[in-house]
Design a binder for these strands. Structure first.
Lengths: 341, 341
DNA sequence: TTGTAAGCGTTATCAT
DNA sequence: ATGATAACGCTTACAA
């Protein structure tokens, strides 16, 4: 008849006629507890099906041993690699990881941030969404001294540790490669310019063009959200130009894929008629025909680094307020879509 | 000098010379509070940068408004579709979602379950890992009356709501299609048989063969974890048989992809020499050459259904203990890999 | 409509 | 080595 909820340390204490504090200490492997007592308590706890109430412990200790990860989309190889990297080091160091996806939706990102803050995560690892142009939901953390690490799509306006890839060099290398392969009228399908990585990829593109003495016509520059549909629209538009591109640097693999599929339908040959390079090295880019040349980003390493930095901050506890930005190298992977036979 | 932490309702109460309970009620939009008081409190809360401590509230109410989702791998289109479905309905009904991936690793799955339980999630949505053969970590939930919904890789041994696709019919349809296309020596690359979906896909395969009067030779049956590497090993092995298959039903798209890539290297033509059907409709299966025929599973709908069932259970609170299993339909998508011209 | 006070399950401080 | 007790920040009877 008893409204019996979960077993608590008090239940155990009562059963053994000892104090709850002793039970707590034993269960936390506090060396001050004698071996026999600990053994007994552990045994009884198991028998009674005891499960610690972490919320209560967290409330008391003001630590959750949890780190939050916010990404635009978990179903992107790059992001899930980062997540795996984060998990790898977090789990090894006793932290749980809670993952949320913003779907590149600003309101959702805001809500996630609020929720994570209210849940008092010990720290946050974030890559912002494409629509994100204001940052109060993230300043929430930095201002309250909750450790914060940005990766990939970072925000300049907030001081924090940041991990980015060298998007500028990535864009430069990709474009340089297209030029080496004979491209001269080169288009760029890029992302929204409020996101720094897309600025940088564009800047790399422009500088490579400049270095080669090639003109960058505005009609060859398209900015959208880089989805499958956006990619198709972009290539349609490019093909309507008086002068058509003979090469395209796409700021992600998804739009490169769209372009390739659309060109196939139009019976325009890749790479013979148009050279293509993507960005991110999504798994499909390797298996598509023609396989897509792309820029590899070390996602797993970035995730490990992010978690490492974050946990370091958590442990140091508002000691240092020197923030660093780490730039990870990119690598050009040459495949079929950009090489003329 | 004060060791000033986060603002609490008490801080607000003190500042306004009212009771903390009034603040609490106002902030929770309790209609019993007068409009002016609420407005004042809300204004002050905002000014003071108040953020509710959800852990404290949860501890008190014994509800977390959080549901846990455990999947083997977030970076599978099927699973991330399910997750999106779960999120869609969960967010709309005021629940947060915390996502974890087991990486098909049993120890990790166990640890995740423990952590989620200790964090007192209000309910759990699970698809088990390939190695999972014991279920105490999940019984933990069912026995303590924490709502539990399984999807896709369900466990027979635990009573709970379950959402599966019709794997048997999926396997049957895939195989029947291969037979219609002229396959007669048909191999099956399947998953581990401790996981029910792979049993069912295999059963569908066998029954379709039987119905067509075709023999199922043990040498044509391979069971592994369906990774890229496993797929390659499987096809290598199949090609070593005296009699080689002229069609293969792969229990997922990943292994189908491996097979296609390996066969391409061996200069064996798909579909001309060997017909292939996969399972799951991963995005890459559409864009690969040849595109992969496959079985579509309605992931997003399954996620929505799972969340709906779970939240229903959470609201009903141990009312009903009638559990249901929902079988979602599968659809054969015919593409290039299984159609002889 | 608002205030008082108890309690959620832990951990930490101070005694013993 | 163990016990008693207060506190973490919130919600909720019950009182006023």
């Amino acid at each position: 008849m008893e409204k019996q909820g979960e077993t608590t340390i008090h239940d155990i204490a009562k059963k053994l006629n000892i104090a709850a504090s002793t039970v707590s200490r034993a269960l936390n492997n506090n060396p001050i507890i004698s071996e026999p007592t600990r053994k007994l308590i552990e045994k009884t706890a198991k028998e009674m099906g005891y499960r610690p109430n972490i919320m209560a412990a967290n409330l008391r200790t003001k630590k959750t041993n949890t780190i939050g990860v916010v990404v635009p989309l978990i179903n992107r190889h790059f992001f899930s690699s980062v997540i795996s990297g984060v998990e790898e080091v977090a789990y090894n160091r006793g932290f749980a990881v809670t993952i949320s996806q913003s779907n590149d939706n600003f309101e959702k990102e805001e809500k996630i941030a609020q929720t994570l803050f209210s849940n008092r995560v010990d720290g946050l690892i974030v890559s912002i969404g494409m629509q994100t142009k204001t940052f109060d939901h993230l300043r929430l953390f930095s201002e309250r001294k909750v450790p914060l690490v940005f990766f990939d799509r970072v925000v300049d306006e907030i001081e924090a540790d940041k991990i980015v890839v060298d998007d500028y060099r990535g864009g430069f290398k990709a474009t340089e490669h297209l030029i080496e392969q004979g491209g001269s009228i080169i288009a760029h399908i890029g992302g929204p310019l409020n996101v720094k990585i897309y600025q940088d990829r564009l800047a790399g593109f422009k500088d490579a063009m400049k270095k080669a003495g090639l003109p960058v016509d505005e009609s060859m520059l398209i900015h959208n959200s880089l989805t499958r549909a956006d990619g198709t629209n972009a290539i349609k538009k490019l093909l309507q130009n008086k002068i058509k591109p003979d090469a395209i640097f796409c700021a992600n693999d998804t739009s490169a894929l769209s372009v390739i599929i659309y060109l196939r339908q139009m019976e325009i040959k890749v790479p013979d008629d148009i050279l293509i390079v993507g960005f991110s090295n999504e798994p499909f880019s390797e298996v598509v025909t023609p396989s897509i040349s792309t820029i590899r980003q070390p996602g797993f390493e970035m995730g490990k680094k992010a978690a490492d930095l974050l946990i370091r901050q958590i442990k140091l506890k508002e000691k240092s307020n020197r923030f660093q930005t780490f730039v990870m190298p990119t690598e050009l992977i040459v495949r079929e879509s950009s090489v003329r036979k």
